[in-house]
Design a protein around this nucleic acid. Sequence first.
DNA 1: ATCGTATGTTAGTCCATACTAACTCTTAAG
DNA 2: CTTAAGAGTTAGTATGGACTAACATACGAT
Lengths: 239, 239
Amino acid sequence: MKKTPATARTVRRGALTGQAEDYLKAIYEMEQGGEPAATNAVAALLGIAPASVSGMLQRLSRLGLVHVERYRGARLTHMGRRAALQLIRRHRIIESYLVTRLGFGWDEVDEEAERLEHGASTELVERMAAALGHPTEDPHGAPIPTSDGVVDERRLQSIADLAVGQTARVVRVSDRDSEFLRYLAAMGIRPNATVKVADRAPFDGPVTITVRGARHQLGVAAASRVYVEPVARTRRAAK
Amino acid sequence: MKKTPATARTVRRGALTGQAEDYLKAIYEMEQGGEPAATNAVAALLGIAPASVSGMLQRLSRLGLVHVERYRGARLTHMGRRAALQLIRRHRIIESYLVTRLGFGWDEVDEEAERLEHGASTELVERMAAALGHPTEDPHGAPIPTSDGVVDERRLQSIADLAVGQTARVVRVSDRDSEFLRYLAAMGIRPNATVKVADRAPFDGPVTITVRGARHQLGVAAASRVYVEPVARTRRAAK
DNA sequence: ATCGTATGTTAGTCCATACTAACTCTTAAG
DNA sequence: CTTAAGAGTTAGTATGGACTAACATACGAT
Ligand SMILES: [Mn+2]
Ligand SMILES: [Mn+2]
Ligand SMILES: [Mn+2]
Ligand SMILES: [Mn+2]
């Protein structure tokens, strides 16, 4: 007897404004921690007033893209998640294309992709992906969702989570702040680089790391934005 | 004593919405005939109601981008023309890039460029242009304005203007209707193709042309959308 | 010179999206 | 338990941009 109501499975591409799309993406990102996306957090991420977020959440809810629990936060619906993942796919493929084919620096592409992601057709994005050999990660190490919305969502540790003496492979870095990316690049921190924690000051103090033989001090804010995968210190020689 | 009022010379990029930019482009195009852009013509071109155009013209006028003569039409100001030409440059470079580097057909790119032109940064467009060797014409034969707004604005004849027996080189074709472009492609009509008028029915009837040895009948609507440069029929053998 | 039609504008409405100010919940400290 | 701070919402306003309906103008045909 329990009949599924006749709800649409997908939002028609183009039915959403660029603004609405960016909200969905922000909510998707905030939700990764398990908790629903908090109004103020979304507002801070998008640089708008909390009241504006309340308004948009109502609109997105009316469209069936989010579930809003009053005073609690928002979660994407199935449909909302699909739309968010499609947008994220567009964003990351565009970033990859700009870096690989047009010589942009990894610190310049987020901003550009942030605008192009709304105007680029699926056709264009798929052609870019094909031209690059269907990459699975963007220039910052972020996984690219497949066209049917599958993405590796495993939680990663950051350098701030490592113990002294641990060695780790950099998997991914936060890409929002281009100055931060230039700072990382100057130290050789990029996806696949190997970092070793040499020291940690107490009370959440700076972390001393070794990258390519050089030592660097990273503040907690920076360290927690570099995501890594600890490397088991094997004693056997390679192979 | 006549001091030039302190008017801005350029619109700050990003100060204009995509909508406003499209209006400027439409006005630029309509103005090419010498007459100011008529409200209804702009409305028809953009597919919106005339009343909406009246409204936008007032906004653009307030921004110093057009001169509006009530009940007469609109002309771009210096600043408006600059903005329009920059947009057109972006549009045409994007079209060229999509065709040359991503394998799009010439019938698919106008629509895509129509959206991307608003989000693409100058940096991106210049990188695309550089990657293509700074093309001077888009895939439809339209001239690409330089980054400082210089463009070849000479008026062209169309096939509908040719006399029987005349031979001409196709310079440019109208690119708005993708079905029309496929129709042309099927006949081999593209920039640089040679066409010869074999016959013309009276009273604005269809034109019979020869392209690559094959005869085709073109209605006036089609013939007047293919722009050509008559070729002087030289009798001497080539070189 | 008049007038009707095509062209254009104004008035009024709507929606998306932002803002500020003022109010209401929730929750952690005491 | 109470309560105040912080988080979130509502109300009211603004702007861009679109629409329809109603009104105004220009101009070619008579
Ligand atoms: Mn965006
Ligand atoms: Mn990225
Ligand atoms: Mn456009
Ligand atoms: Mn074109």
